[in-house]
Amino acid sequence: MSEHVTATYRVNSEGRTIAHPAHHTLLEVLREACGLTGTKHGCELGECGTCTVLIDGEPQLSCLVLAREVEGAAIDTVEGLEGRDLHPLQKTFADLGAAQCGYCTPGILMAAKALIERKPTPTRADVCEALSGNLCRCTGYIKIIEAVEWAAALCRGESGARPADASLYGVCKEKPHG
């Protein structure tokens, strides 16, 4: 049997003391030891972004973090997003149909949350860049981008009109990457 360590993690503001194999990544600890399966495992090599969680507020890939290296850090996963109500990002993703199979969604929600907190009024190029490490094979990204922009508006306390339907199926006018 492999060596185990006992470590205390702060996940979604709650302390959890867990014994787990010493060589496990944060992704393995979250899913297998904490039972928090909202964080998905995709490529497990840093290429897809679906395992994105926030570590001390910054989006990072939990598949490439050795769990014991982040003992004591604030870890936020998709399960912590909802407070008394849905987070604006959850609302806009649901209302706009910004998820299809939904596998990439937890990672995208966490990357988007960090973006909105750092830049409350992101440009479309900012949204595209902030999500450029998160792959989605279903939606074509437009609905995701619009959902993030709409959620940012809601977080700013704006009435937040739903984006015009025409743009839902239109093309991204500002081209993010040459």
Binding site: G46, G49, T52, P59, Q60, L61, L64, A111, E129, G133
Partner: peptide, 9 residues
């Protein structure tokens, strides 16, 4: 280099 999430790490 790489992507924003990877650059944070």
């Amino acid at each position: 280099i790489s992507s924003p999430v990877l650059r944070n790490m």
